[in-house]
């Protein structure tokens, strides 16, 4: 069947069986490989995408379920050649090593600071607790999200001024 989604702001369609997992739809049918598969059992979050702004695990969502909905993947974070603050944060604070969990972590982080612009360290750790990173020990991921939150705050202040 034909499935159409709003992918990173643009309408995208492809033919897929009803059993097609959203992550496979994105990777195989739409050819976007920034969304990864890490565990198959919805434990690791490497497949995280935003569904109408909220992070979900695309290995445990059917593509047909999101017909007509808004999906954001890592490829949609940077806008017009400008990095999203979460991307800048991950680079500046060494929030990534192998990079495999990074797209999911950044999307969760971006949604987190969108909902809670000034998160505490505990709120960040709780917020990313559905995503596993095997390399960083999370210390610098927390800093990366704090970095992005601070950059957002600074930009908002600048915007007001």
């Amino acid at each position: 069947m034909k499935i159409t989604v709003n992918m990173n702001g643009a309408e995208r369609s492809a033919e897929a069986e009803p059993r097609t997992l959203l992550v496979d739809f994105i990777r195989t049918k739409l050819g976007m490989t920034g969304t990864h598969i890490g565990c198959d059992t919805s434990n690791c979050g490497a497949c995280t995408v935003l569904l109408d702004g909220r992070p979900v695990k695309s290995c445990t969502v059917l593509a047909v379920q999101v017909e007509g909905k808004n999906i954001t993947t890592v490829e949609g974070l940077a806008k017009g050649g400008k990095l999203h603050p979460i991307q800048e944060g991950f680079h500046a604070e060494h929030g990534l090593q192998c990079g495999f969990c990074t797209p999911g972590m950044m999307l969760v982080g971006a949604a987190l600071i969108e909902a809670n612009p000034h998160p505490t360290e505990d709120e960040i750790r709780w917020g990313i607790s559905g995503n596993i990173c095997r390399c960083t020990g999370y210390m610098n991921i927390v800093k990366a999200i704090q970095h992005a939150a601070a950059a957002n705050a600074a930009e908002n202040i600048a915007g007001v001024a």
Binding site: S42, G45, T48, L51, R54, P55, V56, T60, V61, N131
Partner: peptide, 12 residues
């Protein structure tokens, strides 16, 4: 509610 699975699962 917050102790059910993890934050992403709770969104779905």
């Amino acid at each position: 509610a917050p102790l059910i699975s993890d934050p992403l699962i709770r969104n779905m």
